[in-house]
Structure formats: C-alpha cells, structure tokens
Simulated scan of single mutants.
Amino acid sequence: MPVSPNQGSTGGGTLVTITGTNLSNTTKVSFGSKLATNITQVSPTQVTAVSPSGTGTVGITVTTPGGTSNPVPFFYVGAPFKSSLDTTAGPLAGGNTVTLNGTGLSTATSVSFGGVTATPTVNSDSSLSVTVPAGAAVGPVPVTVTTAGGTNNGLSYTYLDAPTIATLTPASGPTSGGAAVTIIGTELDTTESVTFGGTPAPFAIINATTLTAVTPPGTAGTADVVVTNPAGSDTAVAAFTYVAVPGI
C-alpha cells in the first residue's frame, strides 16, 4: 500500500494519496494514533487524506468495513531553517548561483525570490544551491524556501543594476599615483572594486552616485577606469591620464 508523498510537515496539512486494494467504503485513515481529515474516496484502489500534525515516523493505516490495513510508514519533517546566503546581492537579470545554508533543507522543492520561484539543487540537509531568477525591479526581496516540512523565510536578497561612470575629477594625475579622484555615476553604493589601468585602487563610497578613489601608480598615458559591483562593471575608456614627472 504505497503512499505519496511519504513525508510531510510536522504541522500537518499534507495531502497524501494512498494506493492499494479493497479501499472502497473507507471509513477512516490513521497516521499513527491520529485520524486524518478530508478523506476522499477516489476509487476502489485509491484514497486521499490530509495528514494531521505529528512528529517522527508513524504508520498510515486505512480502515474499511472489512478491517484495517497493514501500516505504511510516513515521515514527519520539521520546517526548514535558513541561516545565511553566501551572496546577498546580484544583477536584476538573475542567472547567478547562490548557496543557502541552514537546516532541514534535504527535501527542498523550491526557493522563491520575491515571489519568483526557482528549483534548487540540494547539496545536503544543511545546504542547497539555486540559480537566481530575474527580478521585477531593483531592490531587496524576501527569500523563501519550501520543503516537505513547510515554508520558511527570513532572508533577503537585493537585486542590483550594474554601475555607471559619468565623470572623474580630476581626470589626470602623476604616474606615482596618490591622486584623490571623485567618481560620479549611478549604483555606486554597492561598489566592490575600482581599477585604474587594471590595477586595484583603494576607494570609499560616499553615496549611490559618488565615490572617491586614490590612484595607484601607473604608466604615462591614458588608463581605463573600471567600477564593479555584484551586478556587473562599467568601464570608462581612457578616462584617466597618467602624467610623467618632468625632468631637468
């Protein structure tokens, strides 16, 4: 007498299909010592019922005027607990993979990002990976995990646009580096790196449209300036000019 699914939430409420023989005129379905609700006679070989609350492993039995069946195991699963996301922000277009850590994740069937669902890859009971779906708008959204034990939320993921660079002031400085440059643009408050000619520069975020950076040493001539955040990068081609120190 197989049952599907054979596991469900400790809080009950799982619709279970029981398949067997001589199931006509079923009078009750029991999950251990508790009676199921909403019993529906589908056919002489199939009955559906909604599980009551419970814990651990219990036996499902079906009772008809002819007697009570043998028990078939049903496993109660606790609701998942999410502790962290390894990446909490990414591009509005989605497509990046994040790892979610927690407990009770082995039966995860879906992960929702602001109501948009994705199918995860379960790594273990404490870890799953999922490809982030495209978002509807820039900003934070709740992350929800659904397992056989129920649904849990509490984490947040932020959809971002890639940064843009509008202006650099000043636009030139010595080859020895050390020039303080103000960069104006958009989506700069999530900046992860700034480079001048491919060399990382120390930087400080002022707000979403402004950051400052200190130029690293460079070679005389123009250099590309690249600003990167979790959603991508923007390159200002030949935007900064390294000037050699005069010699006499």
Rank of each mutant, 00 (worst) to 15 (best):
K34C: 02
G67K: 04
V122L: 09
T63A: 09
T17Y: 10
L35Q: 14
T45H: 07
T146S: 13
V145I: 08
A208W: 11
T103P: 04
S33W: 04
A220I: 08
V243C: 09
P91M: 12
T121D: 11
S69F: 02
T10Y: 07
T241F: 10
V130Q: 00
V47T: 12
P120V: 10
V225H: 07
Y242G: 07
S110N: 13
G54M: 09
T191Q: 05
K34P: 01
T169L: 13
T121Y: 08
G178H: 01
G197S: 05
G78C: 03
T210W: 00
V116T: 15
T191A: 14
A236L: 10
T158G: 03
G13I: 03
F75G: 01
A171S: 15
I183W: 09
V181T: 02
V225Y: 04
V122G: 02
Q46K: 15
P65S: 06
V145K: 03
P2G: 09
D125M: 07
K82E: 13
T191I: 02
Y159G: 09
S69N: 05
T212Y: 06
Y242K: 00
S24T: 14
T103H: 04
G149T: 03
V143E: 03
A239P: 05
S9L: 02
F81A: 14
N152G: 15
G115D: 01
F240M: 12
T21H: 14
T107L: 04
G56N: 08
T158L: 05
V227L: 09
